[in-house]
Design a protein around this nucleic acid. Sequence first.
DNA 1: GCGGGAAAATAAGTATGACGTTTGCGTCAC
DNA 2: GTGACGCAAACGTCATACTTATTTTCCCGC
Lengths: 233, 233
Amino acid sequence: MENTGQGLHARVLESLGPEITAGEHLPGTVLRTDELAQRFDVSRTVIREAVRVLESMHLVESRRRVGVTVRPTEEWNVFDPRVIRWRLAGADRPRQLRSLTVLRCAIEPAAAGLAARHATPEQCAALTEHAMGMVATSRGQQLEAYLVHDTAFHRTLLTASGNEMFARLNDVVAAILTGRTHHHVMFTDPDPAAVTLHVQVAEAVRTGDAARAEELTREITVGAMAELDILAP
Amino acid sequence: MENTGQGLHARVLESLGPEITAGEHLPGTVLRTDELAQRFDVSRTVIREAVRVLESMHLVESRRRVGVTVRPTEEWNVFDPRVIRWRLAGADRPRQLRSLTVLRCAIEPAAAGLAARHATPEQCAALTEHAMGMVATSRGQQLEAYLVHDTAFHRTLLTASGNEMFARLNDVVAAILTGRTHHHVMFTDPDPAAVTLHVQVAEAVRTGDAARAEELTREITVGAMAELDILAP
DNA sequence: GCGGGAAAATAAGTATGACGTTTGCGTCAC
DNA sequence: GTGACGCAAACGTCATACTTATTTTCCCGC
């Protein structure tokens, strides 16, 4: 029996979770632990542990004498990193990417403003360094190297905001950036204007100009929305 | 022994979770399943299910031959509703309330802007209704009734944004509003200016004035930050 | 025929004991 | 001192029996 995860429950989880988030089991569907145990060829114990986790994500609800029922989409914990990952890997990836980008557009400018006030010298240095790295890799089809610097830049920015909630969204932003590069495969080099904006943000944060950092970051995120055709009608 | 949850695992979870988020077990502490089973007087099965959920929140990490290790705070899934609830109920409630308020301040204006574009007539009606309810209960120590309308107003606003991520933050906003009223006990009636702003937001959303809805909501959230003494140095 | 309550059926919840598996750590030989 | 070896501790998994809550069914009385 091959073991894809760090444990049987993890393996079950990584199968059932995506199935549910992909809409393979529509809300209201009932799954029975015995059937699942049989299907995955594991004991009921393992199934129960996986179901507990799915339940903690509000993906399913377990009730006695009924079974494990899939909950409606609106009740899912859409902030759970695993749910995000599963949905990004699934069919409604575009929808999810748009939701996340809108969220990012609201968060990152505020984070940049806070970073301008709270960033440590080390964080300022890291920001500048990664912005420089973006400049260096912005021409000549070095998209992968560019992505590394881009991701690091935004991770540093969110962390430097000093707000734990913002900081925990770096996975989301990283997923957006990675998705952008890898999905609708970019043959063209990054927009030079965007690169310049990153350099300017690093500068604004370093000099403590919160308003400017916020506004510049807003321009970056607006650009990200434009790429996904998220328009104002 | 009273049964606080819908099952033994829930009871264990509601004990262990708060203990961890309250810092009662410092990061690095190892808990053993057998000891926990003995302590809570339940079987190992129950403990394992509870630990699975804590693990899914990144509060702990379970490793063979080692035990259940408490993870450092930075790794916690701070967006998990239960983690938020536990931390709000614990000792660092003020810190958590500030984090959440900053997050709200970034989110709600954007949500209001989107709501102005996407809100259905029913949602516009609900907004106006709750704003009116706030006006009606804003004088004469009707704080509880006011809170109900205030909460409903913001819940409707976030839902009307049409973004699922924003919509799932209504619990957070509700927690902030409830905390504000219940915690530093408000003897005084709500700020009339804030009440007016809510009415104006409802109006802006109804007329589809996104920019105005966003700016007015920003004023509301800035007011909320001012109440918590979150200042710009 | 109808309503209500008792009983049966069902599926999750819990307990228990045994065994497997990984892995930290100490020991021993070189 | 260093490396290999092996023990033991803790979690991981399984099988099974039993418990409990909840739904459904069905029978009885009106």
